[in-house]
Amino acid sequence: MKGLLLKDLVNLKQQTKIYIIIIAVWLAIALSSKDGSFLGGMICVLSVMLPITTLSYDEKAKWDKYVLSMPVSRKQVVESKYILALALSFIGCIISFAFNLFITKDASQSILMSLAFWAFSIFAFSVILPLIYKFGVEKGRAIILIVFLAPTVLAILIGKLNINLPSKEFLYNLKFVVPIFIIAALLLSCYISIKIFKNKEL
């Protein structure tokens, strides 16, 4: 497992240099506009893109075939991707919180926003990863676009249709339901991905 994670992290080293530059640019934009939410959103997208990039590299090298000749189980191969995604999205959450705090000086809002983006990251890759395991990375890219566009479309629809937004109490209570929902989605996603991968002919 450790070996698999190391492989992904080393493989991503080059990419991260580019991403640091991009994040620095967004940070500058966020500072000037005094709004950290765009930055937070972008970090969220990045933290989902990175594990998917590793899947794309794997596909290109036909790595899965090779690694299964080693003392590594199919379950471990899938689990390592989930651990990677969780770890990267958590780092994204911390960075997003730190930047937000720096920009807005509002701790509670920063925490809430960072956690919300983290929850969305986890939900996003919980949806995307099984689909990539089933259909491959190329088709997966189309799915990623849909997953990230969906909240925006949803927000526009809600605005246009004048649906009554849930009350503040309701949203407050969500605070307890959302983590459970996210963890459930994550575990279900991992279970499904493992099942798909176990049956895949390589």
């Binding site: 070996g3 492989k7 080059q14 590299y57 036909k62």
Partner: peptide, 20 residues
């Protein structure tokens, strides 16, 4: 079938130390 693009021999050594 081989290793992903960006790895070099030293990286591969470090990775396989943790697999085998």
């Amino acid at each position: 079938s081989c290793f992903p693009d960006n790895l070099c021999v030293n990286d591969i050594n470090m990775i396989l130390k943790n697999i085998y």
